[in-house]
Amino acid sequence: MSDKTSPPRTPPWHARPGARAWRCAPAPAQVREFHAALPGHTLTPLTELPSLADELGIGRVFVKDESDRLGLPAFKALGASWAVHRVLAARAADAPGPQGQGRDPVTLVTATDGNHGRAVARTARRLGQRAHVFVPQGVHPQAVAAIAAERARVTEVPGPYDEAVRRAAEAATAPDAVLVQDTAWRGYEQVPAWIVEGYSTLCAEVDDQLAAAGVPDGPGLVCVPVGVGSLAQAVVTHYRSRPSGRAAALLSVEPETAACVLLSLTRGALVGVPTGDTIMAGLNCGTPSSLAWPYLRDGLDAAVAVTDAGSARAVADLAALGVSSGPCGAAALAGLRAALTGAGAAQRRTALGLGPASVVVLLSTEGAAANPGTALNGS
């Protein structure tokens, strides 16, 4: 493990009592069946790391390792594949004329900090469609090149993620184009909802893998990295749709430079924040998804923000334990450490309902290959 390089500090934090009592409808059951039928589909690992449990004074720690999901180094292929499937099915149903007419290839348009755009581009290529991906300032050139290697048209935007989203939405108004964006706003909610449904497969896998590891009642805490909040919405939906049994505590983790969910929870209303530079590029989002917000507001137990140094330390520590994780994926471990150590840790443990026998699942949403060129010193 890496040595601590700074004294304990109180992290940016917000807790909401009563979240574990909130309930919502579950995701469609057929999503997991759809993914299981895709070429190259395999279960991603759930790896137990006893040394982390010892370090943090809890019972067991598991990491859901999304470093190779459907041939890509991140979980995003789950949402992109299901959403594009639904988009193309809807267009086929609406196509005029006899079977086979009115179904020319479409251009799937999206904005991305890297992983989502590559997943949309890969899905488009596999299905014989086109892709146009808008990339904001600050995304590493090798990540941009990886998207282009999927035969996508790439437009680099001299501005932040929210500006790239705006540009993508404009481009998607062209004939034979459709926006496949993982953030929602008023009037654009159906496709983001399908993307969220796609992520439910990850949570269902965790249930089965925990049961096989002797944890049939599920985790006591799930730590989920958050950008616009779509994965967190899927996690909340999964764990808050259970009719009975022990409810898991849910903790969202963001960069301190882009803690839009944390600030929204603190203020009790959806707000945006200006974003800065961070090695957690995929989490560098200034505005939560309007579709995700009600789920995050009512279903998250707590939110915490972490530094680049904390994420970089987590990347190195996970690598030493055999788990490939980029800064966004490792943010889950950084967030757990921030919550359970330092000034005020006892109160944060109580808010999360954690004790010495608790089981924690960290969602490592990307592998190291998803962030080429990232410096581990946080620079």
Rank of each mutant, 00 (worst) to 15 (best):
V139E: 02
H140S: 14
P141L: 02
P141C: 00
Q142S: 12
A143V: 11
A143D: 06
A145G: 00
A145D: 05
A145E: 05
A146K: 00
A146M: 12
I147H: 01
A148T: 06
A148G: 10
A149R: 14
A149W: 11
A149V: 11
A149I: 09
E150Q: 13
R151Q: 05
A152P: 01
A152Y: 02
A152H: 02
R153T: 15
R153E: 14
V154K: 00
V154C: 04
T155M: 02
E156G: 01
E156V: 15
E156P: 01
E156L: 10
E156S: 12
V157L: 07
V157M: 08
P158S: 11
G159R: 02
P160L: 10
P160I: 08
P160V: 08
E163D: 15
E163R: 15
A164L: 10
A164W: 03
V165N: 06
V165C: 14
V165S: 09
V165H: 07
R167F: 01
R167H: 10
A169D: 13
E170A: 14
A171K: 03
A172L: 05
T173S: 15
T173G: 12
T173Y: 11
T173E: 15
A174D: 13
A174V: 00
P175D: 13
P175L: 08
P175S: 09
P175I: 07
D176E: 15
D176C: 14
V178E: 13
V178M: 13
V178N: 07
V178H: 12
L179M: 11
Q181S: 14
T183E: 06
